[in-house]
Design a protein around this nucleic acid. Structure first.
Lengths: 222, 222
DNA sequence: GTCTATATGCCGATAGAC
DNA sequence: GTCTATCGGCATATAGAC
């Protein structure tokens, strides 16, 4: 359908070319727009977000926004593109040489930090999944599978070496993803029930240690 | 804002009044429309769903749909209203007299069955959370908190009795919610990676036993 | 590059016959 | 209750001056 004219807008990588003041200002503006778009798309969806509102949040005019991004759809694609690069990075740190328990503990922490520091990214990714990820068919499907497969192999090696109890590595990964992302995506529910969120340092540490404890040791008494 | 004229449409409960053929047909039609709306709202969001499409899926005309439901917003509210009744029911089964481990195992199963059998409900609930749950402020906030608080007390009693390892009961509940709902909400991602979903009985059982194992015993080797 | 003004298309909702 | 026809508003995107 609308996936025919997807264009990757990689102006971002131009940052290291040490461009002129003019192109620098242009980049800052595009970044501000993308940041604003991320925030609003992740809360109201693409259809539910008016270009006017994004422009207001980014402090540019609507016309000006459409000068930098040809359409709302294209802006969305650019935002998702950038998001994906950040989103999958943490998983890459899984490494067979490292200590299994420590690596898993660290991964849970990093993912929970992402939920605290980048909740809009988490929400937008979640929303895209709910929609059936029409955009991500190619972008995500095979690279993601390969990455996860390779990390599953690492986990299996740990299990074979007795460093980890027997568990399906895929479900372990899904468990870490779901539990940590939940605190960003269901933030309002968490707040309704606990009156706290991850921005509270004590709540963050409490959440982290509980998740680590559940995933590593479970809740069955010894 | 738009929450001023929320009206609970409880025609559903009229089912037991043994209504005439006419009102029976009317109910069937409303149910068909709500079912179709649930499906589409949960995939594309409210703004992203056209009334025309809901009508087509429910096999009625657009005008006819708007005869039964005054507006798209009202239809959405009615759908959410019905959803909530189903959604929180399973938690109510937590009971201090029951065996702790067995109850938790059962709850994980029931929640995973919900993800398998009612994925649209799961998605729509998730989407409403992402949006900040503007509708659910009153509906959900205090009743949900009370329910969860009471179940947290049950879990604490189990811990005090040595039936369960020390854990924050709220994080335990969030863990069960997030892990099980993940298989409905992130279904496309699960499918990309594993090429399977909960409709496959073997995959369902495999998922269930892994979640139960992780949550009860963790992945640390003995 | 940035603005004002406007074109254009879509979609929710209503009017009114039957 | 159900249809056909249509209104009216809103939001994206463009035209064109500066």
């Amino acid at each position: 359908m609308s996936s025919e004219k997807i264009t990757v807008n990689s102006k971002t990588s131009q940052a290291l070319s040490g461009g002129s003041k003019r192109s620098r200002a242009k980049l800052d503006k595009k970044n501000a727009i993308m940041q604003a778009a991320l925030e609003l798309f992740s809360r109201h969806g693409v259809k539910g977000t008016r270009v006017e509102k994004i422009a207001a949040l980014a402090k540019v005019s609507k016309t000006n926004l459409l000068y930098y991004f040809n359409s709302k759809e294209q802006l969305y694609i650019d935002v998702m593109q950038r998001l994906l690069q950040v989103w999958l990075a943490p998983l890459a740190s899984f490494n067979e040489e490292q200590d299994a328990i420590e690596t898993i503990n660290d991964y849970i922490r990093v993912k929970l930090e992402l939920s605290r520091d980048h909740p809009a990214e988490s929400r937008l990714f979640c929303m895209e999944m709910l929609h059936g990820a029409p955009l991500l068919e190619d972008q995500l499907k095979s690279p993601l599978k390969e990455l996860v497969d390779s990390k599953a192999a690492v986990i299996n090696a740990w299990i074979a070496a007795g460093k980890l109890a027997p568990v399906d590595p895929y479900h372990l990964i899904f468990t870490i993803w779901s539990t940590t992302q939940h605190y960003a995506d269901f933030r309002v529910q968490i707040e309704s029930i606990t009156s706290k969120n991850l921005d509270d340092p004590a709540f963050f540490e409490n959440t982290l240690s509980n998740l680590q404890s559940i995933i590593l040791q479970g809740v069955r008494p010894n």
